[in-house]
């Protein structure tokens, strides 16, 4: 079983990133997947999360309890789930938006996803940079799997920049 939470602020593409990741596991890798989401009723405001649980058998928990990976795109979201993040094998953060991290946390992998995304086109695709970096750090899936999933999900207009963002995240060191 793999348990993943992507957390950010409404409007950052948290749920889209979660959907792409869940689709990669389901459609491309043929795993059983549940993706659930949590957001407030406000437009472009509030903590937003997307939980992805991957298993070979039936899935019972609908929200993560023993995280393998937590990806944070916003400081407030990181702060809310810091207790769970301490138990996570990997914590991946966008270092331009999550800056205050306790120094005793040794499981944190930082990437300046927003700046990398801005250099490609706009900070809106920081979520894709983080997905590429996630694939690199965890080895849960290959970048080709992600690319295949993205081709079937995002609109043609954004496909090229999304693929470049994924690749930039994957090759970040």
């Amino acid at each position: 079983m793999i348990q993943i939470r992507i957390g950010g602020w409404a409007g950052q593409g948290v749920i889209l990133a979660g959907t792409i990741l869940a689709e990669t596991f389901s459609r491309v890798l043929k795993k059983n997947v549940v993706m659930t989401r949590s957001y407030t009723a406000a437009v472009r405001s509030g903590i937003t999360t997307s939980d992805i649980i991957v298993d070979d058998g039936e899935i019972y928990d609908l929200i993560i309890t023993r995280p393998d990976v937590m990806i944070f795109m916003y400081q407030k979201t990181f702060d809310r789930y810091i207790d769970l993040a301490r138990k996570s094998k990997y914590v991946i953060v966008d270092s331009s938006l999550v800056k205050s991290i306790p120094s005793d946390m040794k499981n944190v992998y930082s990437i300046d996803a927003s700046s990398i995304a801005s250099r490609i086109s706009s900070p809106k695709i920081a979520n894709m940079v983080l997905l590429g970096y996630y694939a690199r750090i965890t080895g849960h899936l290959d970048i080709k799997d992600l690319e295949e999933s993205i081709r079937g999900t995002v609109s043609r207009r954004f496909l090229d920049e999304d693929l470049r963002a994924i690749s930039a995240g994957f090759s970040f060191s």
């Binding site: 959907t19 869940a22 389901s26 549940v34 993706m35 989401r37």
Partner: peptide, 9 residues
């Protein structure tokens, strides 16, 4: 809301 908004195969 959990079942309505969850994604699965």
């Amino acid at each position: 809301a959990e079942v309505g908004h969850m994604m699965e195969r």
